[in-house]
Design a protein around this nucleic acid. Sequence first.
DNA 1: GATCCACAGGAATAGAAGGTGT
DNA 2: ACACCTTCTATTCCTGTGGATC
Length: 411
Amino acid sequence: MRVDDKKMSDIDNIFDRAASGKSLVKKRETLTIDYVPEKLPFRDQEAAALAQTLSTVFKGARPSNLLLFGKPGTGKTAVVKTVVDRLVKKSGALGITVDVPIINAKLANSAYKMLFEIAEHLGLNKEEKKVVHFTGLSMGEATDRILQFIQNKKMRVILVIDEIDSLVDRNGDDVLYSFTRANERMGKGGFVSLIGISNSLTFKDKLDPRVRSSLSEEETVFNPYTVEQLRQILSERAKLAFSEGAITDAAINLCAAMAGREHGDARKAIDLLRVAAELAEREHALRVEEKHVRAAQEKIEKDTNLEVIKNATTHTKFVMLAITKSKNGNTGEVYEVYSSLCRQAEQEPLTQRRVTQIISELDQLGLVSTDIVSQGRYGRSQKIKVAVPLATVKDALKDDPTFSDLMSSSD
DNA sequence: GATCCACAGGAATAGAAGGTGT
DNA sequence: ACACCTTCTATTCCTGTGGATC
């Protein structure tokens, strides 16, 4: 009876809210990462410096290459986006055409796909037939075609490569070398400037010295936001996003504090805010409170982990399961458990070498934690532990038919 | 102190998948 | 039709090593 009452009143609440046209969030898009506010608080200096560098383009010259450093969520991409936006508008007004493709190297997933995206942005594939496809050509060939195109059209290009460190990790700096060298080969009229955005401060060490000096003609470091700065950013954003009184100050403060605990990550702070709002709306709360923020934190973590495990290859899943099932978690034991799981599922186990590699991949993703311990005479091994709740692993694996038997068979 | 375990993790390479130009 | 491209997964072969036990 009571349950029914509660359900009825819930339904009433939904109707009431809908009827009064009131919901917690009034402008949802302002809570996404893609949304870039008009003015970025606490980043005036950096924006001005960037604008200064790029302004060279209006004098008809090539702006210096530029490297931006900073931890995730410190506003690097946002600053670039706002400045570039203004630049493009201004150049339109002045009748100077500047092309500013913004490419995310990490999302592109490979150097080749990145080149393909650059080609798309610059319109190579619209102008002529068959210029750069998404595979098949050699890297050098694809790069040459892009540069040739720029040269022929005398284009002014400021190429922004976000997460440039992941590009270099995967493919080395050959592509960057070609782009930095391009200007020497290019006649008058056209040019390419590079703006690299890097999360890693040690990124420069991985570069060939020639590329390094050329790429970082200028550089800017973005420092993490302080908790107080995060709080201000959030409350400003909340004013835009939420209806009057739909979120408590305490909730905002908590978001700021949680995101600040890591390294002043504004992206994370805003993610928290958005998910907290979603959770609050789902339970038809009158406003977003601290408990929603806490729940949001858990949900975000769980969702990303869930996603990663679900999309892993079968053997990676086997390894993950083997780690949860192994007792003391050293490599030999995990491999034993893994092999027997494979046999149960009638699959050929991979070599140990490959399994250690998979384990270190899992480690990098933060799904497991490893610790190298030496037991003297008894060898040297890793101690591997799962770093996510067991329930998350089970949740992720239960949809995969290969694992349904294994999961139910023991514990 | 020397030894020696039980691995860690680098290097080279293969081959399949999804493509290219000529 | 054929040589050749990149990327990803996986294998083979290999050298390196921290510290408890001899």
